[in-house]
């Protein structure tokens, strides 16, 4: 996880396209400029970045399922809960499952757990649109970096 570059996912552990489910791992860095302000002497991953982490796991699931046909952009966050503090060195398990595929949008339910305890969860929705120029290749590179399996 590189907070300042918004690289929130380290590795995809499980991808089940048929069930519409992904499981990924990520380790919070020991140090980051983010922690200098959030909070001085008491470093915590901000809730918005935990939301982004869940959104990225969901997004890779959508990309994989759709064969990188369209780009999902976060459009709604419902029922977000941040149940426990998340800080430097924490090993995150991030899960997301598709709950609805609409016309031009998708919905997911995502969660983060640390050592088997749920620390955050939310219901997310994404508008899916044709890729802006150049973003397709960038997303494919990122997907390769985290080991997102290619479609058979």
């Amino acid at each position: 996880m590189r907070l300042e570059y918004f690289e929130m996912i380290d590795r995809v552990a499980v991808l089940d396209l048929e069930a519409g489910r992904i499981e990924a791992t990520s380790t919070v860095p020991e140090a980051s400029p983010v922690f200098e302000g959030h909070f001085p002497g008491h470093p915590l991953v901000p809730g918005v970045l935990l939301t982004e982490t869940m959104a990225q796991a969901s997004g890779y699931l959508v990309l994989a399922r759709d064969g990188f046909g369209r780009m999902p952009f976060l459009m709604a966050v419902d029922k977000a809960r941040f149940r426990e503090f998340v800080g430097p060195g924490d090993a995150l398990r991030v899960t997301a499952e598709l709950t609805h595929e609409g016309s031009g949008y998708v919905a997911t339910r995502a969660a983060i757990s640390v050592a088997g305890r749920k620390v955050a969860d939310a219901e997310l929705r994404f508008r899916t649109v044709p890729f802006p120029p150049g973003l397709d290749a960038r997303m494919r590179r990122e997907a390769a970096r985290i080991g997102l399996p290619r479609r058979p």
Binding site: M75, A76, E101, G102, S103, G104, Y105, R127
Partner: peptide
């Protein structure tokens, strides 16, 4: 358009359908 996607989501869920919004647009 964004609010209409929210409405489509709620309608899809309430009626168990998939509004073909992209086709309509």
């Amino acid at each position: 358009s964004l609010a209409f996607l929210d409405i489509a989501f709620a309608v899809d869920k309430a009626f168990g359908i998939k509004l073909p919004l992209e086709q309509w647009t």
